[in-house]
Write a protein that binds this DNA or RNA. Sequence first.
DNA 1: CCCTCGATCAC
DNA 2: CCTCATATCGAGGG
Length: 366
Amino acid sequence: MPPRVVVHADMDYFFAQCEENANPDIRGKPVVVCVYSGRTAESGVVSTCNYEARNHGVRAGIPIVRAKRLLEKTEAVFLPMNRPLYENVSDKVMQLFRSYADVFEKVSIDEAYLDVTARTKGSYKEAERIALQIKEELRNRENLTCSIGIGPNKLVAKIASDERKPGGLTVVEPARVESFLAPLPVTRIPGVGRVAEEKLSKMEIRTIHELTGITSSQLMELFGKSLGSYLHDAARGKHQEPVKEGEPTTQFSRIATLRQDTRDPGEIEPLLTELAVSVAKKLEENRMNFRSVSLIAILDDLSTHTRSITIDSPANTEKVIVDLSQRLLAQLLQSLPTATMRRIGVRVSGLSKKMGQTDMMKYIAS
DNA sequence: CCCTCGATCAC
DNA sequence: CCTCATATCGAGGG
């Protein structure tokens, strides 16, 4: 396998940056994009915020009320999520990124990998020029900034893009991978979250250098075969996953917060039906069928419970989703006789493409 | 190999 | 005080 040159491009404080462009008056003030849960006027969490807000300690995931306290002496602007706006901007950004890639992979609404091995002929200097060009075009065309990392694989490129934010560019040539990774905390490795960090911390492992001191069998014992061997390689900057065009989605879900905690099906079902309808719409938009329906329940103690059912042949109707999710709710309430629900959700999975006439011909022909 | 369910991650 | 959406894994059962 020849050496690769992989770029990871990550939009800076994306949702808040979109809002700054949509309404330039708010530029310079702390901007906080919120997910309101609808329980009380203030309940919910911060989705994203700009750096003015971060300077006051605001972070993604903190309760909105806490953000308001942190920003009470400022002219902070609190905005509800405007998904359609961000999707529109994202489409343009991704189109721009794609135009610079031999192989393009969108990983989320605001991040993508670009394999540029062929067009740079393996030159990191050339890849750096491409990165600067991307940034400039993004600035000129969309008035947006991003952070970019370049490395010999997706893992190193992603860690690199995180190194200098916002607006950074970090190039890690193959010969520099080891010294780049060594001093970083293990939490910089994608896949190492709160739980994995805690496990490693108990073994006095906090940096990636320290992580290289543990054998792959030890890691596999601690984290399972898959995550264990991944971490062993990741610590050494080794990662084989190719940059590839995104696979089709395999599930759709909608989850919402109840107005008040309850275990009364009469109170839960209207919301559940709404969610089921919304999921059905999403299926229809994508011309997909499903084979499984899951009910997701988050209780008042924030524990999560799921119940699912798989049917023999693919379906796609709203009615089936509604009926099955209500059946699953009854089943769940029965199995948890004292549980009180806080949030409720519906998921469909086991998706398959509804075949149109042309596809059907291909199918028969094969 | 398929299904179910909880856990984890990261958005 | 604690959102929302998707993917993946491992265990357990069949």
